[in-house]
Design a protein around this nucleic acid. Structure first.
Lengths: 206, 206
DNA sequence: CCTTGAAACGGAGGGTGCCTCCGATTATAT
DNA sequence: ATATAATCGGAGGCACCCTCCGTTTCAAGG
Protein backbone atom coordinates (compact mmCIF):
# COMPACT_ATOMS: atom_id res chain seq x y z
CA UNK A 1 0.00 0.00 0.00
CA UNK A 2 2.90 2.40 0.56
CA UNK A 3 3.25 4.74 -2.39
CA UNK A 4 6.50 5.79 -4.03
CA UNK A 5 7.81 7.38 -0.85
CA UNK A 6 11.46 7.39 -1.68
CA UNK A 7 13.89 10.15 -0.84
CA UNK A 8 15.42 10.84 -4.20
CA UNK A 9 13.68 12.00 -7.34
CA UNK A 10 15.61 9.71 -9.67
CA UNK A 11 14.58 6.74 -7.59
CA UNK A 12 10.93 7.70 -7.83
CA UNK A 13 11.28 8.31 -11.55
CA UNK A 14 12.94 4.95 -12.16
CA UNK A 15 10.35 3.19 -10.12
CA UNK A 16 7.67 4.65 -12.34
CA UNK A 17 9.55 3.76 -15.51
CA UNK A 18 9.98 0.17 -14.35
CA UNK A 19 6.30 -0.18 -13.48
CA UNK A 20 5.35 1.20 -16.87
CA UNK A 21 7.67 -1.19 -18.68
CA UNK A 22 6.51 -4.11 -16.55
CA UNK A 23 2.86 -3.40 -17.28
CA UNK A 24 3.58 -3.51 -20.99
CA UNK A 25 5.75 -6.63 -20.76
CA UNK A 26 3.36 -8.60 -18.56
CA UNK A 27 0.52 -7.64 -20.84
CA UNK A 28 2.42 -8.72 -23.93
CA UNK A 29 4.37 -11.78 -22.72
CA UNK A 30 2.46 -12.83 -19.63
CA UNK A 31 3.70 -12.99 -16.07
CA UNK A 32 6.87 -14.83 -17.10
CA UNK A 33 8.20 -11.87 -19.08
CA UNK A 34 11.96 -11.45 -18.72
CA UNK A 35 12.86 -9.15 -15.86
CA UNK A 36 16.16 -8.18 -17.47
CA UNK A 37 14.20 -7.22 -20.55
CA UNK A 38 11.83 -5.11 -18.47
CA UNK A 39 14.80 -3.34 -16.93
CA UNK A 40 16.31 -2.80 -20.36
CA UNK A 41 13.12 -1.36 -21.83
CA UNK A 42 12.75 0.87 -18.79
CA UNK A 43 16.26 2.16 -19.42
CA UNK A 44 17.66 1.03 -16.09
CA UNK A 45 20.14 -1.63 -15.04
CA UNK A 46 19.00 -4.99 -13.70
CA UNK A 47 20.21 -4.14 -10.21
CA UNK A 48 17.94 -1.11 -10.09
CA UNK A 49 14.93 -3.21 -10.87
CA UNK A 50 15.81 -5.72 -8.17
CA UNK A 51 16.46 -2.97 -5.67
CA UNK A 52 12.95 -1.59 -6.17
CA UNK A 53 11.24 -4.97 -6.50
CA UNK A 54 13.13 -7.82 -4.83
CA UNK A 55 11.12 -10.53 -6.56
CA UNK A 56 8.92 -10.94 -9.59
CA UNK A 57 5.95 -11.18 -7.24
CA UNK A 58 6.68 -7.79 -5.71
CA UNK A 59 6.75 -6.21 -9.15
CA UNK A 60 3.64 -8.06 -10.25
CA UNK A 61 1.83 -7.04 -7.10
CA UNK A 62 2.50 -3.35 -7.72
CA UNK A 63 1.54 -3.58 -11.37
CA UNK A 64 -1.74 -5.19 -10.33
CA UNK A 65 -2.68 -2.31 -8.05
CA UNK A 66 -4.28 -0.42 -10.89
CA UNK A 67 -6.41 -3.40 -11.82
CA UNK A 68 -7.34 -3.90 -8.21
CA UNK A 69 -8.93 -0.49 -8.13
CA UNK A 70 -11.16 -1.55 -11.00
CA UNK A 71 -11.95 -4.81 -9.24
CA UNK A 72 -12.91 -3.09 -6.01
CA UNK A 73 -15.15 -0.70 -7.95
CA UNK A 74 -16.90 -3.68 -9.50
CA UNK A 75 -17.27 -5.20 -6.07
CA UNK A 76 -19.08 -2.10 -4.86
CA UNK A 77 -21.25 -2.22 -7.93
CA UNK A 78 -22.13 -5.84 -7.29
CA UNK A 79 -22.73 -5.19 -3.61
CA UNK A 80 -25.38 -2.68 -4.59
CA UNK A 81 -27.37 -5.28 -6.50
CA UNK A 82 -30.58 -6.29 -4.73
CA UNK A 83 -30.37 -9.92 -5.84
CA UNK A 84 -27.84 -12.01 -3.93
CA UNK A 85 -27.35 -14.45 -6.78
CA UNK A 86 -26.67 -11.73 -9.32
CA UNK A 87 -24.32 -10.08 -6.86
CA UNK A 88 -22.28 -13.23 -6.34
CA UNK A 89 -22.25 -14.00 -10.03
CA UNK A 90 -21.20 -10.45 -10.81
CA UNK A 91 -18.35 -10.67 -8.33
CA UNK A 92 -17.15 -13.98 -9.73
CA UNK A 93 -17.19 -12.51 -13.22
CA UNK A 94 -15.21 -9.48 -12.09
CA UNK A 95 -12.77 -11.75 -10.29
CA UNK A 96 -12.36 -13.81 -13.43
CA UNK A 97 -11.61 -10.71 -15.47
CA UNK A 98 -9.08 -9.59 -12.92
CA UNK A 99 -7.32 -12.95 -12.92
CA UNK A 100 -7.25 -12.84 -16.71
CA UNK A 101 -5.42 -9.50 -16.77
CA UNK A 102 -2.13 -11.17 -17.67
CA UNK A 103 -1.46 -14.52 -19.21
CA UNK A 104 -0.41 -16.99 -16.54
CA UNK A 105 -1.57 -14.86 -13.63
CA UNK A 106 -3.27 -17.71 -11.75
CA UNK A 107 0.07 -19.44 -11.24
CA UNK A 108 1.63 -16.79 -8.98
CA UNK A 109 -1.60 -16.64 -7.03
CA UNK A 110 -1.49 -20.36 -6.48
CA UNK A 111 2.10 -20.07 -5.37
CA UNK A 112 1.21 -17.21 -3.03
CA UNK A 113 -1.46 -19.44 -1.57
CA UNK A 114 1.26 -21.64 -0.12
CA UNK A 115 4.05 -19.13 0.54
CA UNK A 116 2.56 -16.55 2.83
CA UNK A 117 5.79 -14.59 2.47
CA UNK A 118 4.74 -13.53 -1.01
CA UNK A 119 3.32 -10.02 -1.34
CA UNK A 120 0.47 -11.57 -3.31
CA UNK A 121 -0.60 -13.56 -0.28
CA UNK A 122 -2.28 -10.59 1.34
CA UNK A 123 -4.11 -9.82 -1.90
CA UNK A 124 -5.12 -13.44 -1.97
CA UNK A 125 -6.59 -13.31 1.48
CA UNK A 126 -8.43 -10.11 0.70
CA UNK A 127 -10.01 -11.65 -2.38
CA UNK A 128 -11.07 -14.71 -0.43
CA UNK A 129 -12.59 -12.49 2.23
CA UNK A 130 -14.59 -10.52 -0.32
CA UNK A 131 -15.70 -13.73 -1.96
CA UNK A 132 -16.87 -14.90 1.42
CA UNK A 133 -19.05 -11.82 1.86
CA UNK A 134 -20.89 -12.43 -1.38
CA UNK A 135 -21.06 -16.14 -0.73
CA UNK A 136 -22.50 -15.79 2.76
CA UNK A 137 -25.20 -13.46 1.52
CA UNK A 138 -26.03 -15.80 -1.36
CA UNK A 139 -26.18 -18.81 0.94
CA UNK A 140 -28.55 -16.98 3.27
CA UNK A 141 -30.72 -16.28 0.28
CA UNK A 142 -30.63 -19.85 -0.96
CA UNK A 143 -28.80 -18.66 -4.05
CA UNK A 144 -25.64 -20.60 -3.39
CA UNK A 145 -25.21 -24.18 -2.28
CA UNK A 146 -24.72 -24.55 1.47
CA UNK A 147 -21.68 -26.78 1.20
CA UNK A 148 -19.61 -24.30 -0.82
CA UNK A 149 -16.89 -22.47 1.11
CA UNK A 150 -15.04 -19.34 0.08
CA UNK A 151 -11.51 -20.72 -0.21
CA UNK A 152 -12.71 -23.53 -2.46
CA UNK A 153 -14.70 -21.07 -4.53
CA UNK A 154 -11.68 -18.84 -4.91
CA UNK A 155 -9.59 -21.81 -5.97
CA UNK A 156 -12.28 -22.67 -8.44
CA UNK A 157 -12.01 -19.15 -9.84
CA UNK A 158 -8.26 -19.60 -10.19
CA UNK A 159 -8.81 -22.84 -12.07
CA UNK A 160 -11.37 -21.26 -14.34
CA UNK A 161 -9.08 -18.31 -15.07
CA UNK A 162 -6.29 -20.75 -15.83
CA UNK A 163 -8.23 -22.25 -18.73
CA UNK A 164 -10.45 -19.31 -19.57
CA UNK A 165 -8.82 -17.82 -22.65
CA UNK A 166 -7.91 -21.22 -24.10
CA UNK A 167 -11.53 -22.20 -24.68
CA UNK A 168 -11.70 -20.76 -28.16
CA UNK A 169 -8.94 -23.06 -29.36
CA UNK A 170 -10.89 -26.21 -28.90
CA UNK A 171 -14.41 -25.66 -30.09
CA UNK A 172 -15.89 -24.25 -26.94
CA UNK A 173 -16.28 -20.87 -25.31
CA UNK A 174 -15.25 -19.19 -22.07
CA UNK A 175 -18.95 -18.91 -21.26
CA UNK A 176 -19.30 -22.69 -21.34
CA UNK A 177 -16.50 -23.05 -18.82
CA UNK A 178 -18.04 -20.37 -16.62
CA UNK A 179 -21.37 -22.16 -16.79
CA UNK A 180 -19.81 -25.38 -15.54
CA UNK A 181 -18.17 -23.47 -12.72
CA UNK A 182 -21.46 -21.83 -11.77
CA UNK A 183 -23.88 -24.74 -12.22
CA UNK A 184 -21.69 -27.84 -12.38
CA UNK A 185 -21.78 -30.50 -15.02
CA UNK A 186 -24.07 -32.90 -13.19
CA UNK A 187 -27.73 -32.40 -12.50
CA UNK A 188 -29.16 -32.46 -9.01
CA UNK A 189 -27.36 -31.77 -5.74
CA UNK A 190 -24.64 -33.47 -3.71
CA UNK A 191 -25.74 -35.55 -0.78
CA UNK A 192 -24.34 -33.13 1.76
CA UNK A 193 -26.70 -30.40 0.62
CA UNK A 194 -29.82 -32.44 1.18
CA UNK A 195 -28.88 -33.54 4.72
CA UNK A 196 -29.37 -37.18 3.76
CA UNK A 197 -26.66 -39.75 4.44
CA UNK A 198 -23.55 -37.63 4.86
CA UNK A 199 -20.90 -40.09 3.80
CA UNK A 200 -17.27 -39.21 3.67
CA UNK A 201 -16.52 -38.42 0.03
CA UNK A 202 -19.75 -37.46 -1.68
CA UNK A 203 -22.38 -39.48 -3.40
CA UNK A 204 -20.68 -41.21 -6.26
CA UNK A 205 -17.49 -42.63 -4.98
CA UNK A 206 -17.16 -46.39 -5.12
CA UNK B 1 2.46 -45.78 -29.40
CA UNK B 2 5.60 -47.12 -31.11
CA UNK B 3 7.80 -48.92 -28.65
CA UNK B 4 11.56 -48.68 -28.38
CA UNK B 5 12.14 -49.86 -31.95
CA UNK B 6 15.64 -48.60 -32.49
CA UNK B 7 18.42 -50.37 -34.31
CA UNK B 8 21.13 -50.38 -31.71
CA UNK B 9 21.01 -51.93 -28.28
CA UNK B 10 22.78 -49.04 -26.55
CA UNK B 11 20.19 -46.64 -27.97
CA UNK B 12 17.35 -48.73 -26.56
CA UNK B 13 19.15 -49.00 -23.24
CA UNK B 14 19.72 -45.25 -23.00
CA UNK B 15 16.15 -44.54 -23.92
CA UNK B 16 15.01 -46.67 -21.04
CA UNK B 17 17.46 -45.06 -18.62
CA UNK B 18 16.27 -41.61 -19.62
CA UNK B 19 12.62 -42.54 -19.18
CA UNK B 20 13.37 -43.96 -15.76
CA UNK B 21 15.24 -40.84 -14.69
CA UNK B 22 12.55 -38.59 -16.12
CA UNK B 23 9.80 -40.41 -14.26
CA UNK B 24 11.65 -39.88 -11.01
CA UNK B 25 12.47 -36.24 -11.76
CA UNK B 26 8.97 -35.29 -12.89
CA UNK B 27 7.53 -37.00 -9.87
CA UNK B 28 9.89 -35.19 -7.53
CA UNK B 29 10.21 -31.73 -9.12
CA UNK B 30 7.15 -31.52 -11.33
CA UNK B 31 7.00 -31.17 -15.08
CA UNK B 32 9.55 -28.33 -15.04
CA UNK B 33 12.36 -30.58 -13.81
CA UNK B 34 15.70 -29.78 -15.43
CA UNK B 35 16.29 -31.81 -18.57
CA UNK B 36 20.05 -31.56 -18.24
CA UNK B 37 19.68 -32.91 -14.74
CA UNK B 38 17.57 -35.80 -16.03
CA UNK B 39 20.25 -36.58 -18.59
CA UNK B 40 22.91 -36.41 -15.90
CA UNK B 41 21.07 -38.72 -13.54
CA UNK B 42 20.46 -41.11 -16.42
CA UNK B 43 24.20 -41.15 -17.08
CA UNK B 44 23.94 -39.80 -20.62
CA UNK B 45 24.88 -36.54 -22.28
CA UNK B 46 22.33 -33.82 -22.94
CA UNK B 47 22.49 -34.42 -26.68
CA UNK B 48 21.44 -38.02 -26.21
CA UNK B 49 18.37 -36.98 -24.33
CA UNK B 50 17.40 -34.47 -27.00
CA UNK B 51 18.02 -36.99 -29.75
CA UNK B 52 15.58 -39.41 -28.18
CA UNK B 53 13.07 -36.78 -27.09
CA UNK B 54 13.24 -33.56 -29.12
CA UNK B 55 11.16 -31.57 -26.65
CA UNK B 56 10.11 -31.74 -23.04
CA UNK B 57 6.62 -32.61 -24.26
CA UNK B 58 7.86 -35.65 -26.14
CA UNK B 59 9.57 -36.93 -23.02
CA UNK B 60 6.60 -36.15 -20.83
CA UNK B 61 4.28 -37.88 -23.25
CA UNK B 62 6.29 -41.09 -23.12
CA UNK B 63 6.57 -40.99 -19.35
CA UNK B 64 2.81 -40.60 -19.14
CA UNK B 65 2.14 -43.76 -21.13
CA UNK B 66 2.29 -45.90 -18.04
CA UNK B 67 -0.26 -43.73 -16.27
CA UNK B 68 -2.46 -43.76 -19.32
CA UNK B 69 -2.80 -47.51 -19.06
CA UNK B 70 -4.18 -47.06 -15.56
CA UNK B 71 -6.50 -44.33 -16.78
CA UNK B 72 -7.87 -46.47 -19.58
CA UNK B 73 -8.44 -49.33 -17.18
CA UNK B 74 -10.43 -46.99 -14.96
CA UNK B 75 -12.38 -45.86 -17.97
CA UNK B 76 -13.39 -49.44 -18.69
CA UNK B 77 -14.34 -49.88 -15.08
CA UNK B 78 -16.51 -46.77 -15.20
CA UNK B 79 -18.06 -47.81 -18.49
CA UNK B 80 -19.28 -50.97 -16.83
CA UNK B 81 -21.26 -49.03 -14.23
CA UNK B 82 -25.00 -49.23 -14.79
CA UNK B 83 -25.63 -45.67 -13.62
CA UNK B 84 -24.68 -42.98 -16.16
CA UNK B 85 -24.11 -40.37 -13.48
CA UNK B 86 -21.78 -42.56 -11.47
CA UNK B 87 -19.97 -43.49 -14.65
CA UNK B 88 -19.35 -39.88 -15.64
CA UNK B 89 -18.35 -38.94 -12.13
CA UNK B 90 -16.01 -41.92 -11.95
CA UNK B 91 -14.38 -40.93 -15.20
CA UNK B 92 -13.92 -37.33 -14.10
CA UNK B 93 -12.33 -38.55 -10.88
CA UNK B 94 -9.97 -40.83 -12.76
CA UNK B 95 -9.13 -38.00 -15.14
CA UNK B 96 -8.39 -35.73 -12.21
CA UNK B 97 -6.05 -38.30 -10.69
CA UNK B 98 -4.26 -38.70 -14.01
CA UNK B 99 -3.80 -34.95 -14.39
CA UNK B 100 -2.44 -34.83 -10.87
CA UNK B 101 0.28 -37.38 -11.59
CA UNK B 102 2.96 -34.68 -11.74
CA UNK B 103 3.00 -31.22 -10.30
CA UNK B 104 2.21 -28.69 -13.02
CA UNK B 105 0.92 -31.25 -15.50
CA UNK B 106 -2.14 -29.23 -16.54
CA UNK B 107 0.09 -26.53 -18.03
CA UNK B 108 1.59 -28.65 -20.83
CA UNK B 109 -1.89 -29.95 -21.61
CA UNK B 110 -3.18 -26.42 -21.94
CA UNK B 111 -0.27 -25.59 -24.20
CA UNK B 112 -0.91 -28.70 -26.27
CA UNK B 113 -4.48 -27.57 -26.63
CA UNK B 114 -3.29 -24.68 -28.77
CA UNK B 115 -0.24 -26.18 -30.45
CA UNK B 116 -1.47 -29.26 -32.26
CA UNK B 117 2.15 -29.99 -33.15
CA UNK B 118 2.73 -31.13 -29.57
CA UNK B 119 2.71 -34.88 -28.99
CA UNK B 120 0.36 -34.26 -26.10
CA UNK B 121 -2.25 -32.89 -28.50
CA UNK B 122 -3.31 -36.34 -29.62
CA UNK B 123 -3.60 -37.48 -26.00
CA UNK B 124 -5.65 -34.37 -25.40
CA UNK B 125 -8.06 -35.19 -28.18
CA UNK B 126 -8.40 -38.76 -27.00
CA UNK B 127 -9.27 -37.66 -23.50
CA UNK B 128 -11.85 -35.21 -24.80
CA UNK B 129 -13.36 -37.95 -26.95
CA UNK B 130 -13.65 -40.32 -24.00
CA UNK B 131 -15.13 -37.55 -21.90
CA UNK B 132 -17.66 -37.00 -24.65
CA UNK B 133 -18.74 -40.65 -24.51
CA UNK B 134 -19.51 -40.49 -20.82
CA UNK B 135 -21.06 -37.07 -21.17
CA UNK B 136 -23.38 -38.07 -23.99
CA UNK B 137 -24.62 -41.07 -22.05
CA UNK B 138 -25.16 -38.97 -18.95
CA UNK B 139 -27.01 -36.32 -20.90
CA UNK B 140 -29.31 -38.92 -22.42
CA UNK B 141 -30.01 -40.11 -18.91
CA UNK B 142 -30.67 -36.65 -17.59
CA UNK B 143 -27.63 -37.02 -15.35
CA UNK B 144 -25.67 -34.18 -16.91
CA UNK B 145 -26.82 -30.72 -17.91
CA UNK B 146 -27.73 -30.44 -21.58
CA UNK B 147 -25.65 -27.33 -22.20
CA UNK B 148 -22.36 -28.88 -21.11
CA UNK B 149 -20.00 -29.86 -23.93
CA UNK B 150 -17.01 -32.17 -23.73
CA UNK B 151 -14.22 -29.69 -24.54
CA UNK B 152 -15.47 -27.30 -21.88
CA UNK B 153 -15.75 -30.13 -19.40
CA UNK B 154 -12.23 -31.25 -20.16
CA UNK B 155 -10.98 -27.71 -19.69
CA UNK B 156 -12.83 -27.63 -16.41
CA UNK B 157 -10.99 -30.79 -15.38
CA UNK B 158 -7.69 -29.13 -16.26
CA UNK B 159 -8.61 -26.14 -14.15
CA UNK B 160 -9.62 -28.34 -11.25
CA UNK B 161 -6.39 -30.33 -11.48
CA UNK B 162 -4.45 -27.08 -11.54
CA UNK B 163 -5.70 -26.12 -8.10
CA UNK B 164 -6.44 -29.57 -6.73
CA UNK B 165 -3.49 -30.27 -4.46
CA UNK B 166 -3.32 -26.68 -3.20
CA UNK B 167 -6.65 -26.90 -1.42
CA UNK B 168 -5.19 -28.09 1.86
CA UNK B 169 -3.08 -24.97 2.22
CA UNK B 170 -5.98 -22.66 2.63
CA UNK B 171 -8.54 -24.25 4.84
CA UNK B 172 -10.41 -26.25 2.30
CA UNK B 173 -10.22 -29.67 0.69
CA UNK B 174 -9.85 -31.11 -2.78
CA UNK B 175 -13.32 -32.59 -2.36
CA UNK B 176 -14.80 -29.13 -1.95
CA UNK B 177 -13.28 -28.03 -5.23
CA UNK B 178 -14.50 -31.19 -6.95
CA UNK B 179 -17.98 -30.56 -5.60
CA UNK B 180 -18.04 -27.09 -7.11
CA UNK B 181 -16.91 -28.53 -10.39
CA UNK B 182 -19.60 -31.19 -10.31
CA UNK B 183 -22.53 -29.21 -8.94
CA UNK B 184 -21.55 -25.56 -9.32
CA UNK B 185 -21.60 -22.92 -6.66
CA UNK B 186 -25.02 -21.50 -7.49
CA UNK B 187 -28.34 -23.19 -6.97
CA UNK B 188 -30.78 -23.78 -9.78
CA UNK B 189 -30.02 -24.01 -13.50
CA UNK B 190 -28.81 -21.66 -16.19
CA UNK B 191 -31.39 -20.17 -18.51
CA UNK B 192 -30.19 -22.17 -21.49
CA UNK B 193 -31.05 -25.45 -19.79
CA UNK B 194 -34.67 -24.54 -19.21
CA UNK B 195 -35.35 -23.46 -22.82
CA UNK B 196 -36.60 -20.10 -21.60
CA UNK B 197 -35.28 -16.86 -23.03
CA UNK B 198 -31.96 -17.84 -24.53
CA UNK B 199 -30.06 -14.59 -24.24
CA UNK B 200 -26.49 -14.29 -25.33
CA UNK B 201 -24.42 -14.48 -22.16
CA UNK B 202 -26.46 -16.32 -19.58
CA UNK B 203 -28.83 -15.16 -16.94
CA UNK B 204 -26.83 -12.94 -14.65
CA UNK B 205 -24.88 -10.61 -16.80
CA UNK B 206 -25.52 -6.86 -16.49
C1' DC C 1 27.75 28.01 -4.88
C1' DC C 2 30.44 24.36 -3.18
C1' DT C 3 31.21 20.50 -0.35
C1' DT C 4 30.15 16.08 1.24
C1' DG C 5 27.95 11.99 2.77
C1' DA C 6 24.59 8.94 1.73
C1' DA C 7 21.43 7.08 -1.54
C1' DA C 8 20.90 5.16 -5.83
C1' DC C 9 22.75 3.45 -10.09
C1' DG C 10 24.32 -0.05 -13.56
C1' DG C 11 27.82 -2.87 -15.68
C1' DA C 12 30.15 -7.01 -15.10
C1' DG C 13 29.83 -11.56 -13.96
C1' DG C 14 28.55 -16.14 -11.71
C1' DG C 15 25.07 -19.69 -11.68
C1' DT C 16 21.61 -22.47 -14.12
C1' DG C 17 18.88 -24.22 -17.74
C1' DC C 18 18.01 -25.01 -22.78
C1' DC C 19 19.64 -26.76 -26.84
C1' DT C 20 23.13 -27.89 -30.81
C1' DC C 21 27.50 -28.70 -33.15
C1' DC C 22 30.76 -32.03 -34.28
C1' DG C 23 34.59 -35.00 -33.38
C1' DA C 24 34.88 -39.49 -30.94
C1' DT C 25 32.91 -43.88 -30.04
C1' DT C 26 30.43 -48.11 -30.56
C1' DA C 27 27.37 -51.54 -32.61
C1' DT C 28 26.32 -54.43 -36.39
C1' DA C 29 26.70 -56.33 -41.04
C1' DT C 30 29.73 -58.37 -44.19
C1' DA D 1 38.52 -58.13 -38.89
C1' DT D 2 36.98 -54.26 -41.02
C1' DA D 3 33.94 -50.85 -42.77
C1' DT D 4 30.15 -48.06 -42.22
C1' DA D 5 26.57 -45.98 -40.30
C1' DA D 6 24.23 -45.10 -36.04
C1' DT D 7 24.84 -43.20 -31.67
C1' DC D 8 27.15 -40.75 -28.15
C1' DG D 9 28.60 -36.79 -25.18
C1' DG D 10 31.48 -32.83 -24.12
C1' DA D 11 31.95 -28.17 -25.13
C1' DG D 12 29.87 -24.06 -25.83
C1' DG D 13 26.46 -20.35 -27.24
C1' DC D 14 22.39 -18.12 -25.68
C1' DA D 15 18.91 -16.41 -22.35
C1' DC D 16 17.51 -15.69 -17.86
C1' DC D 17 18.07 -14.71 -12.89
C1' DC D 18 20.24 -12.28 -9.50
C1' DT D 19 24.29 -9.85 -6.91
C1' DC D 20 28.62 -7.55 -6.01
C1' DC D 21 30.88 -3.32 -5.98
C1' DG D 22 32.99 0.73 -8.03
C1' DT D 23 30.82 4.97 -9.86
C1' DT D 24 27.47 8.50 -10.24
C1' DT D 25 23.91 11.51 -8.64
C1' DC D 26 21.05 13.74 -5.41
C1' DA D 27 20.16 17.07 -1.81
C1' DA D 28 21.27 18.94 2.64
C1' DG D 29 24.31 22.11 5.08
C1' DG D 30 27.94 25.42 5.18
Amino acid sequence: MRAQTSKRTDARRNRGLILEAAKAAFGRDGVHASLDEIARSAGVGPATLYRHFPTREHLLCEVLHERQAVLLALRDEALALPDAKSALYGWMTALGDYLGAFNGLPQPFIDAFEAQASPLAVTCRTLVAITDEFLARAKADGAARQSVCAPALFLSALGAAFVHDKAGRYGTTPEQVEAIQAFGYLTGHPAVDTSHSIRKTGAFHD
